[in-house]
Design a protein around this nucleic acid. Structure first.
Length: 209
DNA sequence: CTGACGATTCACT
DNA sequence: GTGAATCGTCAGC
């Protein structure tokens, strides 16, 4: 099952993030492990839902039209960095910066399945027992893993926040691509199938269930 | 300095 | 299924 962890986990190398095809990276992040290590507490979750933000031509992206502000400048850094952004004044959204310097691609992690450190996640989210709401939705993923805007700009090659491969590869037939969520302001780009999910996984966010 | 708004969530009907 | 909460960020004055 998805929550089995192999002993040998391998941190993804810089070369994974610096590739040009952000859609491919978003798809390949499905099934990978997102690991955080704060205060000596390790929490791990398997990624089951991602969204790609495709640079300056993507109306849904913060970097649309080459916009560069104090908030989003980390998107213009080299691949392999974190970009954490506060939404609605409350929710911390965790993104992975991809491609090379000056090319602002990013992948939003929208949902994950808890693997290790579940007691810590429960404490952070003030929940009594784990259920499918623990890490469903981008705001909840960050909360459970203890990620906040303070962690924006971190390198995924360090040991604080990183993404690892434990050899798990989702079935090709279990991967679906769909339009993105919550980007109605993006005009025609709303329709782009830039969201990748693992089919039938209870942690995937969205309208149904 | 001011006003408008959001890559969402949760409580409630 | 619907609607309100809530505050940092950004653009404009």
């Amino acid at each position: 099952m998805l929550n089995k962890v192999d002993q040998n986990i391998q941190k993804l190398p810089l070369s994974f993030y610096t590739r040009k095809d952000v859609l491919l990276i978003a798809k390949e992040l499905l099934g990978k492990l997102l690991v955080t290590c704060f205060d000596n507490k390790i929490t791990t979750a398997r990624i089951v839902e991602t969204e790609a933000y495709n640079g300056i031509t993507d109306k849904a992206s913060h970097a649309y039209g080459g916009r560069k502000t104090n908030r989003n400048r980390i998107m213009y850094a080299n691949g392999g960095h974190t970009y954490v952004y506060l939404c609605y004044g409350i929710h911390h959204l965790f993104n992975v910066v991809t491609n090379r310097e000056e090319i602002p691609h990013a992948v939003l992690i929208r949902a994950a399945e808890p693997v290790t450190g579940i007691p810590e996640m429960l404490q952070r989210t003030q929940k009594i027992k784990p259920d499918h709401t623990l890490t469903r939705g981008p705001g909840n993923v960050s909360k459970a893993l203890g990620i906040s805007t303070l962690h924006s700009g971190f390198s995924l090659l360090e040991d604080i926040i990183f993404i690892a491969d434990d050899g798990f590869v989702p079935e090709e037939t279990s991967i679906l691509s769909t339009p993105r969520i919550g980007v109605d302001y993006a005009g025609q780009d709303v329709l782009l199938p830039y969201r990748f999910i693992i089919k039938d996984n209870p942690f995937v966010s969205g309208k149904k269930k």
